[in-house]
């Protein structure tokens, strides 16, 4: 279980997150939605300990960061490092062997090629495979579906279901509502640095309708499309 109390983050006078209070349980999948710049990535980084912040994060895992597998929105790869070496690097960091990497290469990535030559989606899949090989207890996935082909999206959805079954905590963000509908038990809507709404599975439709109404409004009419 992870308990977040009064979490706030500001860059100078610009407040990004204010008074965030959330609870994440084992065996549950949580979605965080919000517009670009709403603070999702900052929240994830604060939770992971990659950003300093005010407030309290309590967990049975100590230190929590050593149990988190964090998939960044835009994973960084050095030039001249192969996919397999990247997996090895992340496994070494958590002192796990990674086992037979070729067998665990569920996305059929060309692991012997330089990761910098991969497409956006392939990079995302490599970074995801790496944190899965680490065998973490908590998974924070920042836009795992972004740039990934439809077949791999299906695999990612199944992986998230498997993680839930293994009693892991999964927190993810996505700009595609249907992916959250397929995976999440609860969705939190982050707006202007605050959690504006939290809904469980039975109210996902109403959240989507609310977001649609708020986001679209009369914007399309303003375009005066002809």
């Amino acid at each position: 279980m992870i308990q977040i109390d009064s979490l706030s983050k500001a860059y100078g006078s610009h407040i990004v997150l204010r008074d965030i209070r959330l609870q994440f349980e084992k065996g549950m999948v949580y979605g965080i939605v919000g517009e670009n710049g709403s603070g999702k990535t900052t929240l994830f980084k604060c939770l992971a300990g990659l950003e300093t912040c005010h407030g309290h994060i309590k967990s049975e895992f100590n230190p929590i960061k050593n149990h988190i597998g964090f998939l960044p929105t835009d994973p960084y790869f050095f030039s001249k490092i192969t996919g397999k070496e990247y997996l090895q690097l992340l496994c070494n960091a958590r002192k796990t062997s990674g086992g037979h990497m070729d067998e665990k290469n569920v996305f059929d990535l060309p692991l012997d090629q330089y990761a910098s030559t991969y497409s956006t989606g392939m990079k995302k899949k490599l970074a995801l495979t790496a944190i899965l090989l680490q065998q973490n207890d908590i998974y924070i996935l920042d836009e795992p579906y972004n740039g990934v082909d439809i077949h791999s999206n299906m695999i990612i959805t199944e992986i998230i279901h498997s993680l839930r079954a293994l009693n892991k905590v999964v927190i993810l963000s996505s700009h595609i509502f249907s992916t959250l509908r397929d995976t999440c038990d609860q969705i939190h809507h982050l707006r202007d640095g605050q959690i504006s709404t939290s809904v469980t599975r039975e109210n996902f439709d109403s959240l989507e309708a609310e977001m649609k109404a708020y986001t679209i409004g009369n914007r399309i009419a303003k375009l005066d499309l002809k």
Binding site: A48, G49, L50, K65, F70, Y76, L90, A93, R94
Partner: peptide
Amino acid sequence: ETSYLVWIYAM
């Protein structure tokens, strides 16, 4: 390296 590649270490 980026902070992420240091952060990953459970050390």
